[in-house]
Amino acid sequence: MTQPIPTAADERAITPANRRASLIIAALVAALAVAAIYVAKDFPSTGQRTDPGASRFPMIYGVVLLVLCGLLVLDTLKRPVVEAVDALAPAELMRRIVNVAIGMGLTILGVYAIDFVGYLPATGVYLAVAMAVMGFRHPLWNPLLAVAMTAALYVAFSIGLAVPLPVGSLFE
């Protein structure tokens, strides 16, 4: 899923995928800006005569974002659309997306686990599984390294720097 490079003919050219993405992002950001303005307009005044209030700055940012999104849409529509020359094969692209999604999902699970069973067991298992998923599957080194790295972080933070790490809601 690396960025497809458009043909050298026109450096302003974009691929159809890129064009679609830019338009979707512009719409999403514009929606965010509208939502922010909508929420901000009800912020109460600070009660000080000279103060413009809590809502002034978020409103300004929201309006500027709307303008910028408009500009992005215009800019995107103006650019010529060219098929990417070195685009990845759909299968390869899919494989990468799946890999990243697995990685992200695993990390989110890991954080949930840390919150639930505590830092030590959760991090150990997370590291072992993540390394295995990424291709490091040595039956001895994988668990050994996972334990070693977990312990190293624990020593550095919890003992060395006196930062308590989560013990997990299960044991608390």
Binding site: T123, M131, M149
Partner: peptide, 11 residues
Amino acid sequence: TPLILALCIVG
């Protein structure tokens, strides 16, 4: 890569 993520989480 997993180590970096663990470091980010703990940090």
